[in-house]
């Protein structure tokens, strides 16, 4: 066998493989090429088997050349393999293409009630100012709803808030601690809380209250209040004003909310005030709270020693504040359970 012939054979094989690889269109074909030329029974191995027959002085040269060709071709096939794989994936993904402008498919979350959202907002702000949140009962005794709050039997204030009374088989109950009603305000918790806790204290009491009155866009037989109470050695009306200024500023997320106090009357505070706010310069004053300094008789009813403490109390209408916050014009919507309304929150 001619030596130049062997060299030529290697060249021909190398050329054939390179051509085949460049023509291969898929991974199956490429694998066939690998088996046919570089496999155990492939053409390259056939040439290796011929090596012993060539002259001794050329053996080493041809042996090295065969090895280097094998490495080159394997690299070539591997490289081509990667190319084909990439191409395959690319084509497959191309077929999976979608119209990204189609609408998304979402899991629909429910909606919290607007009063819940506003109540949380209020609670968060007051809690950050050190007020604890406490709850009271909706069924309350005549004593805590009226008597303990300095609203005596024939007081004009009982006239102002007509009350739902609980029917009782023992029709005429004289003991006001047993005579039950639906609380007309959250204020009974002032007396109940102070009976069990000593000053200094600061609490807010959110909850549902009831009034027997004709309903319209701004009146409901049930609504929600948030009572506030802060008592200490020297808690003043000026403190209340600062607390309100801070609260309303944060509640409405504004740099400043104008607050105005004017005279008001609630039997359980003295002095008593009404609180108005103004959200924009030039807009109307909005009445948002009743407040004042806790009346000495309320402290006395709660068992405090007279003259040892002073503090403020306030009541904010949750429904009213929510109406202002969201621009809702009819309080009855809150209790309509109309999803067209609820889904907006």
């Amino acid at each position: 066998m001619a030596v130049e012939n062997f060299d030529e054979k290697i060249n021909i094989l190398e050329k054939k493989v390179k051509e085949a690889v460049s023509r291969a269109l898929d991974l199956v074909r490429l694998d066939e090429i690998r088996v046919k030329y570089l496999g155990r029974k492939g053409e390259l191995n056939d040439l290796i088997k011929e090596l012993p027959g060539i002259p001794e002085e050329l053996k080493a040269h041809n042996g090295r050349r065969l090895n280097s060709v094998r490495n080159d071709l394997e690299n070539l096939i591997n490289k081509k393999s990667v190319e084909l794989k990439d191409k395959f994936v690319e084509e497959k993904l191309k077929k999976e293409g979608i119209d990204v402008t189609m609408p998304g498919r979402s899991v629909s979350l429910g909606h919290l009630h607007p009063l819940t959202k506003v109540e949380r907002r209020i609670e968060d702000i007051f809690q950050s100012m050190g007020f604890s949140v406490v709850f009271g009962s909706e069924i309350e005794s005549e004593y805590y709803n009226f008597d303990a709050l300095n609203i005596s039997k024939d007081h004009p204030a009982r006239e102002m808030q007509d009350t739902f009374w609980i029917k009782n088989p023992k029709s005429e109950i004289q003991n006001p601690k047993q005579h039950l009603l639906l609380r007309t305000h959250t204020s009974p918790m002032q007396a109940r809380y102070m009976e069990k806790n000593n000053p200094p204290l600061r609490i807010i009491v959110p909850g549902r209250v009831y009034r027997h009155e004709a309903t319209d866009a701004s009146h409901e037989i049930q609504f929600h209040q948030i009572e506030g109470l802060m008592v200490g050695e020297d808690i003043s009306l000026a403190n209340l004003k600062a607390i309100f200024e801070e609260f309303f500023k944060r509640f409405f997320n504004k740099k400043k909310v104008e607050i105005r106090f004017r005279p008001g009357y609630f039997p359980f505070v003295e002095p008593g005030i009404e609180v108005d706010i103004k959200l924009e310069t030039g807009s109307k004053w909005l009445e948002v709270a009743g407040a004042g300094m806790v009346h000495p008789k309320v402290f006395k009813a709660a068992g405090y020693i007279p003259g040892k403490q002073q503090g403020f109390a306030f009541g904010v209408g949750l429904d009213r504040l929510s109406m202002i916050y969201y621009g809702i014009s009819d309080i009855r919507l809150f209790y309509s359970s109309d999803f067209r309304f609820l889904k907006q929150f």
Binding site: M129, V133, M230, A238, N239, K241, E246, R260, F261, P263
Partner: peptide, 25 residues
């Protein structure tokens, strides 16, 4: 006190934050 305060002018009152120590609610 209420009489004096309202004639003095409730609206003139300046807010003043309480100096009591902040307690954790």
């Amino acid at each position: 006190i209420e009489e004096v305060f309202r004639i003095y002018g409730c609206m003139n009152l300046k807010g003043q934050m309480p100096v009591a120590a902040i307690t954790i609610p």
